[in-house]
Design a protein around this nucleic acid. Structure first.
Lengths: 246, 246
DNA sequence: CAGTGGTCTAGACCACACG
DNA sequence: GTGTGGTCTAGACCACTGA
């Protein structure tokens, strides 16, 4: 049995397969299920491993969704949420503005003792308790973001989060009116999805995510929140104006 | 033969393997070669496929580099280049400021006929010729970025690029003094590395890259350049200040 | 329970670097 | 030529879903 074809045209089997897959996905109506992986692999003449590898990028682009035990489905074309990065605004606010439905999925609220690293980042003492809020944000019936906020003590209590919390720590603090928020210092990172986050977002471990790592400051210059936000590409569009000689 | 262990502790073999690998990489002096993949796989008791999957993230973090035909090497800890995203500045300028060595690797200059899409993006006529400049930027002896600029006609000629071009279209235009540059409208994207780019950057296809997609404007408001920049994570640190209610 | 996607294995061959 | 990483295959078992 021949285990690999020579690579004559400098186009990998993988690339050709992607073109084939793109066609198949395009021709499949939104919401429909694709053939099962073994069937597809066989009909395309490749192994399941290669097929799955090629499928990954389409899932990253938000064109398909694979669901264990169910099947692989073609998604309908999504509406982009466009955001100027310079403006600090919750994904919820952004999505609602263009009329998209927003829901909170999984929610986990914890008190955590800060280790050396976290204490340093938050500017609090070691072993002091911080509140950590993790949740998945669904937009238009699909997971769009995974958000983790770690707040210094005294900003929010658990009761603040028990009723009426819709997913945005930012909006909640703004609504309460204090502390008065000023700005965030945000680092932009590309990151493969860790296993635990991938599972909650219904994507594959290693899929590409855009991550915003932010430190949130109030108007007195005090840092109050360390926030980590993971976004599925193709869903949000982050833009920034860069100027010469600023 | 047992083909897969039950997942008792909810920690995948993959995750345990990553911890093991992290230890091995940590204990290996910078510049040293690791065992070959078959050796490592065997000594860790996993298949080569699983080992390679686990290695990917370390390569993405810039901790190791795999080189076909040579081996896998542990890199020394790199210095970060920190950049405020609001400022439009070449990676070359940024790197030199903190004393890092910058070189241009692969360089390709082409005239291309613009198709409908490109013409629309650049604001020129279909079939008009644009200049496309692709190159790899090495920082501190390692590929750090892959840059593609597509310029409207009349901005730069090929002779401008034949001598003294060090990799930055931005710096070159600034040096020539005209047109006078103003700002860029930049979209921030997380993207898996396409095969061709991965090869030139000496990383693996599918590795995570941070991509900046920018439209560059001069002071008259004319768009002159569409630039695509791919960055290896962990190398550049992009920051932006986000403000409330702007 | 049957059927789906998720993970992993063992082994083959290809492409590349270096002596 | 020898040895490395790069790609692909065939097939096994695991984990999950829904009937």
């Amino acid at each position: 049995m021949n285990h690999q074809q020579p690579n004559f045209d400098n186009l990998s089997l993988f690339q050709k397969l992607q073109q084939e897959l793109a066609r198949i996905i395009e021709e499949t109506p939104a919401g429909e299920r694709l053939q099962s992986e073994p069937e597809l692999a066989s009909s395309l003449g490749v192994s399941r491993a290669t097929l799955r590898e090629a499928m990954r990028s389409f899932e990253g682009q938000g064109l398909i969704r694979r669901r264990q035990g169910v099947g692989t489905f073609v998604l309908d074309h999504q509406q982009n949420i466009e955001t100027g990065l310079e403006v600090l605004e919750s994904i919820e606010t952004q999505a609602r503005r263009i009329g998209l439905d927003v829901k909170m999925g999984y929610l986990d609220i914890n008190k955590i003792k800060s280790d050396v690293e976290l204490a340093k980042k938050l500017g609090i003492n070691e072993n002091e308790e911080a509140i950590r809020i993790s949740r998945v944000i669904w937009v238009a019936e699909r997971p769009a973001a995974f958000l983790v906020d770690t707040l210094i003590p005294g900003i929010l209590e658990e009761k603040d989060l028990s009723d009426g919390f819709t997913g945005s720590v930012l909006d909640l603090i703004i609504k309460r009116g204090k502390p008065e928020l000023s700005h965030s210092k945000t680092e932009v990172i590309a990151s493969p999805a860790p296993s635990d986050i991938a599972k909650k977002m219904q994507i594959q471990r290693g899929d590409v995510l855009l991550k915003l790592d932010a430190l949130l400051f109030d108007k007195t210059g005090r840092m109050i929140d360390y926030s980590q936000s993971y976004f599925i590409p193709g869903f949000m569009k982050f833009e920034v104006i860069r100027s010469i000689g600023k």
